[in-house]
Design a protein around this nucleic acid. Structure first.
Ligand code: ZN
Ligand code: ZN
Ligand code: ZN
Ligand code: ZN
Lengths: 130, 130
DNA sequence: TTAAAAATGTTATATTATAACAAACGTTAC
DNA sequence: GTAACGTTTGTTATAATATAACATTTTTAA
């Protein structure tokens, strides 16, 4: 079941770290950062990550095995995600584009599959790195 | 440098297995399948996979850490990939839709990033599983 | 208040991927 | 031919990512 508002202690700790970060964070880097707070095992991180993803508070960047905070309040619980990723500095930016989102949400594959969710990752070189 | 036609021995072995498979294959499952052919180490698999991806012969399904053969002759060396993925049977189908591809290829994020590549993964339940 | 659900703590292990180095192979240039 | 170069291969070791399993505690709600 997906909670609406309340975060558990570990979930809040993990979310705080991800939200403060400037870029995507990896699970074990989160772990190292919270050992002072009494979290010692990967399981504790991965469980918090799973719940935070379910709640739409964070997203996983699949091509990087890393996690970012959701910046879109309207990002309906991770059903439709899009990111731009810089191949030079590793920066990740969540794309919030209504037209794009509508276009993809209404896209249905010919072979008869009705989609429930999508994830789109764009790659390039960001403005800073150019 | 990306080779045009010729595949090395290991590359051919790995490609054959992926092409014969009905669904996406994981690296270590490929490894177990080729040990009779004298390939013994993960490195040998991962090196072949890397080259095959560079050549556009296969694609990595990022959300599954698995690999599929490219079915589109026109899939310009993995610069623009889209897949439909069944969450029930794990089936993966490469989407070849010119309009979609054009739409996404011409999509540029507002913040000034010019994209070189994208990967899109749709999730749902396939016809068979419904 | 008690039963169920969710979250935690912990140890161990599975899975995915890369580092590092030496040897063999295949071109091409001379 | 053979030297020089880039690519592929073989191999051992290890790093990085993720889950299994089980006991306990906390929270929620009937
Ligand atoms: Zn979001
Ligand atoms: Zn950058
Ligand atoms: Zn393709
Ligand atoms: Zn299916």
């Amino acid at each position: 079941m997906v909670q609406a508002q309340t975060l558990s202690r570990n979930q809040q700790i993990v979310l705080d770290i991800i939200e403060k970060a400037k870029g995507p964070l990896k699970a074990y880097s989160i772990l190292f950062n919270v050992q002072k707070k009494g979290i010692n095992a990967p399981q504790q991180i991965y469980r918090a990550l799973d719940k935070l993803i379910e709640m739409g508070k964070i997203h996983k960047i699949e091509s990087k095995n890393a996690f970012v905070a959701c910046r879109n309040s309207d990002c309906e619980i991770s059903k439709a995600t899009a990111f731009s990723i810089c191949e030079s500095c590793e920066m990740v930016d969540e794309i919030s584009d209504v037209k794009l989102s509508k276009y993809l949400s209404s896209f249905n594959h010919k072979k008869g599959m009705k989609f429930k969710r999508f994830n789109l990752e764009f790659f390039g070189i960001c403005k800073k790195c150019k």
